[in-house]
Structures are given as C-alpha cells and as structure tokens.
Simulated scan of single mutants.
Amino acid sequence: MSDIIDLSIPVHPEMLHWGRRPTYEMVEEITETNPSEVSRWLIGAHTGTHVDAPSHFVKGGTTVDALPIERTVGPARVLDLRHVEREITAQDLEAAGAQGATRLLFKTRNSTDALTRNEKSPNWVGLGPTGAKWLADHGVVFAAIDYMTMEAPDHTTLWPTHVILCNAGTVILENANLASAEAGDYYLVCQPIPFEGREASPAPAILLPAR
C-alpha cells in the first residue's frame, strides 16, 4: 500500500460545488485524422480541493500566487474530529491534540458524509469562531477541512471564521478528502495554482509520512 495519501477530489460537472459547477467542452477529439484530445474548462477559483488566500476576506491581503510555499509545504497534523456534530471549537482542537502544530487538517464526519454528496449538505461540520481564534493565537499557518467551506453552517452570513483566519494570514484548504488519513503527524505538500492577483485557486495536495 502506498504511503502517499491524495487529498484531492475529482473535478467534474456534477461535483459538489458552492455556486456554479464547472463545465467543459471538447476542442479536439481523437479521430482517424486527429491524434489527440483537447478540452477547455470553465471553473471557479474555489473549485474542488482549493486554497483560500488571505485576500479572500482581506482587501489588499496576500493573493494566492504570493503565498509563501513554507505555509503549504511542511510538517502537518491530522486531527480526529469525527465526533463533532456541527461546529469545531477551541476546546475541541485542544482535546484532539492541536497544540504544537503549525499546519492542521480537520478530519470530520464530512469525509464520509457531506463531502461524498453532489449537493450541498444541510448539516456539515465546520470550524467555529472560537476555533479560528485559537488557530490565530497559536500561530497556525495552514488549516484544512473536508468540506467545501471552512465555515460552520450557522455562520455563513458574516463568515467570522474566514475573517479571523484571513486576517491572521492563515492559508485555508477546503474540500480536502481525509477519509484515508488517520489522526497523526505527516508531511504536507500542497501546491496552489498561482492565479496571479486572485483570492483562491485549485490546489492539489498530498500527505506523506512524517519526516
């Protein structure tokens, strides 16, 4: 069995998506006279497994192409938060062993429930404002969750978790498939597509054994 855990979810027109789903057209197809296939995609910056940069909620904040690679590559810790019903709190983070890690990935029941659906779940698990403040206060530079938003369901009007994390400079990874990742320490490699001047981009990500 491979020691590499792929966190990326497939991109396709019927996928789970906040807002407009991706579409594509075939520009070229293999025929007797044409040797190759070429497709053209229309996708949003927040499609699939993607990174939110601080500029997503901070005017003039760091854009996705300017994120320091040291924030998205390095030692990381997966926390088992599958018992959380709706909102991850500061107390939940401490109880799960978040102390001392600067890159955290939240494995919740989303990985085997909300993330597997093609339509938005009414009851996903997200990070609450107290959890976001804990991350900011403890110098966490990267946080990932297994759903299309880091925000908890009850806060998608003012988006306090995003506001706190973006103002702290914390990189957010959303739609991370953590179903195969056990709680513990790993080495994270996440490489956002450098959309110049933009607030987000698709970001293939993998976990390797801890170094």
Rank of each mutant, 00 (worst) to 15 (best):
V27Q: 13
S121T: 09
L115R: 08
V27F: 13
H83A: 05
L7H: 06
E37H: 09
R211E: 14
D80Y: 04
A168H: 07
V64D: 02
E28W: 10
I172C: 10
H83R: 01
I9V: 15
A181I: 08
S121N: 14
T112W: 11
D6A: 12
I43L: 12
I69E: 03
T161K: 09
H162V: 05
G44S: 11
T31I: 09
E14D: 15
T89E: 10
E182A: 15
W134Y: 13
T102F: 03
A101H: 01
H56E: 11
V58F: 04
Q191R: 13
W18D: 12
L178M: 09
T47C: 04
L135F: 14
I145L: 13
T157G: 08
G97Q: 01
L79V: 08
W134A: 11
N177T: 07
P192M: 00
N34Y: 06
Q99E: 05
G131I: 13
E85I: 00
P75C: 01
V141M: 02
G44R: 10
A203W: 08
Q91K: 05
K59N: 05
E14Q: 14
A203Q: 04
T63L: 06
A176M: 01
S180R: 14
G19M: 10
S121Y: 04
A95P: 01
P10S: 11
T116L: 15
P13V: 11
L207P: 03
S55A: 08
F142E: 07
R211K: 13
G100E: 02
A179P: 07
V125Q: 05
M150W: 06
E196P: 05
E119K: 11
Y187T: 04
T112L: 08
A203S: 03
M15F: 08
K133C: 06
T112Y: 07
V125N: 02
A205K: 06
G128S: 15
G184Q: 04
N118A: 14
G48C: 08
L158V: 12
G131W: 12
G60K: 00
Q191L: 13
T31M: 07
Y147V: 09
G184F: 06
P204R: 03
E119R: 14
V58P: 06
Y24D: 09
G139Q: 00
I4F: 09
W41A: 09
R198C: 07
V73P: 00
V64L: 02
W18Y: 15
A179K: 12
D137N: 04
R198S: 03
A45C: 01
L207C: 01
A205G: 05
G19Y: 09
A176W: 03
L42W: 10
A114P: 07
R21N: 13
F106D: 11
D154S: 14
R86I: 04
E29T: 06
V140Y: 05
V51P: 06
S36R: 15
H56R: 14
I164S: 10
S55G: 02
R82M: 10
P194V: 02
I145V: 15
I4C: 13
P153Q: 09
S111C: 10
A181W: 10
H155Q: 13
P122Q: 02
E174H: 00
D137C: 03
K133Q: 15
S2H: 15
L208T: 07
K59D: 13
D113K: 13
H17C: 14
G74M: 02
